[in-house]
């Protein structure tokens, strides 16, 4: 994989404060020149044309923009690209491809864990991170006993997935998909 140079939009005026940012995105080193106001989300979508990560609200309220940065899930609309110099970003495009789906993606298809598909990349990125968080014993609001190993339960998954809105209402199917992956890899 070769590094590439991309800029979100050629600044037409020297007044625009821009920065150079180095990111590793889905395993590929990227150097971007970004308007300092550019969110990580827009750097991905507009700069790198990685449009699998969605903009639903641009306010950190819906979760459609969820990606993992250095292994942790974040709302990419809530952080600026310039804050991620040197970071390792994984988007839905790095999770799997139509011909080589990740087990979580395949489980979403199998359980019909989506309808319109717009929240789906964020749900999947979140779901993979949720299972990892539970395995690492990171507690949540519904964790009953902090001294014991946290079980992968329906309640833990529902609680931890609640930052990802699905207006089509596929929640029950998403839960089934995540549960299947959790059990398959337990």
């Amino acid at each position: 994989m070769s590094p590439s140079d991309v800029s979100t939009a050629p600044p037409s005026d020297t007044d625009i404060p821009c920065s150079s940012v180095q990111l590793t995105v889905n395993g590929t080193a990227q150097t971007l020149t970004v308007d300092n106001r550019t969110t990580l989300l827009d750097a991905l979508r507009e700069g790198l044309h990685l449009t699998g990560t969605k903009k639903g609200c641009d306010h950190g309220q819906c979760g459609a923009c969820t990606v993992t940065v250095n292994g942790r899930r974040i709302n990419s609309c809530l952080s600026l690209a310039v804050m991620h110099d040197g970071d390792d970003v994984t988007t839905i495009e790095g999770v799997g491809t139509p011909d080589a789906l990740d087990p979580m993606q395949a489980a979403f298809v199998e359980h019909d864990g989506f309808q319109c598909g717009y929240c789906t990349p964020g749900q999947i990125c979140s779901a993979k991170a949720v299972l990892e968080e539970i395995r690492q014993n990171v507690p949540s609001h519904v964790t009953k006993n902090l001294m014991e190993t946290i079980p992968i339960s329906e309640t833990e998954i529902r609680e931890r997935m609640s930052g990802n809105i699905c207006r089509c209402g596929a929640y029950a199917n998403i839960l089934a998909a995540i549960t299947q992956v959790a059990e398959g890899s337990a």
Binding site: L50, V95, Q105, G117
Partner: peptide, 8 residues
């Protein structure tokens, strides 16, 4: 489905 779950 495969297009939607892979962001394509």
């Amino acid at each position: 489905g495969p297009l939607k779950v892979s962001g394509r």
